[in-house]
């Protein structure tokens, strides 16, 4: 089953946990070949929005459309088109780098498992450590491995929660280049980040969330710092 993945749109989405509102009527959209950045202070609802986009969490109200279909209409096959790099990394610490990749490649039913696993290890710079267990890896190594794991099945929509934490400058530059390449290939990327320098180099659109509300949604480049200062920095100071 193939999906028309021209656009992902979030319409009037709210999510509450009992009496607590995590998201209130958020609407935004992102087209193929664009990188959307989610900025905001901690607890603003960025991760909740990412979970809703990944179909793991159902919205309390409103809907998300992938192309023309909602998650309920598209069914489980939609999950093959989504990739999520979560803050929790989703790796088994007792398994080796290669075993982790191989397990998820097989679970997603991709073709040429060996080739993809080898390519992913190469890109993560972990070829020499392929048979070492993940629990011995540094945060940066895990982060790179987790990213490659999320990309194994070549998702159309890639959701990244703070992908730059724990990476050194060279790795950040490599990751930015990689994400640009994916953007060029017509993928949709949604990135949660605090790193303004990277954000300016990478993002096409910016959404600023605060207390579960969308306070700014802008596709003009170069105004990221302005939005950030207006809504996020004051709270951090």
């Amino acid at each position: 089953m193939t999906f028309d993945f021209g656009e992902v749109s979030v319409r009037e989405v709210s999510r509450n946990y009992g009496r607590r509102r995590a998201l209130t009527r958020v609407s935004l959209a992102c087209r193929a070949g664009e990188v959307l950045g989610l900025l905001g202070p901690n607890g603003a609802g960025k991760s909740t929005l990412l979970s809703i986009l990944s179909t793991l969490l159902a919205p309390s109200a409103g809907d998300v459309r992938y192309g023309t279909k909602t998650a309920a209409e598209a069914g489980p096959a939609l999950r093959a088109c989504l990739g999520l790099l979560s803050h929790d990394l989703h790796l088994y610490p007792e398994l080796t780098a290669a075993e982790n990749l191989r397990f998820f490649a097989q679970l997603y039913g991709v073709s040429d498992v060996d080739g993809r696993v080898a390519a992913a290890l190469d890109r993560a710079g972990l070829l020499s450590r392929r048979d070492d267990v993940v629990s011995g890896f540094s945060r940066g190594m895990r982060q790179r491995l987790a990213l490659e794991r999320a990309l194994l099945h070549e998702p159309r929509l890639l959701l990244l929660d703070e992908p730059f934490t724990g990476l050194d400058d060279a790795s950040v530059a490599a990751l930015v280049a990689r994400l640009r390449e994916l953007r060029g290939a017509g993928r949709i990327l949604v990135v949660v980040t605090h790193d303004l320098d990277v954000a300016e180099r990478l993002l096409d659109k910016v959404a600023v969330l605060k207390d579960g509300r969308l306070v700014a949604f802008d596709d003009a480049r170069g105004r990221i710092r302005e939005h950030y200062r207006a809504h996020v920095a004051e709270q951090r100071a």
């Binding site: 509450n16 009992g18 009496r19 509102r21 209130t24 009527r25």
Partner: peptide
């Protein structure tokens, strides 16, 4: 009541 709380919150 929960719904009203949510609405008031909004």
């Amino acid at each position: 009541v929960e719904r009203l709380y949510l609405l008031a919150d909004e």
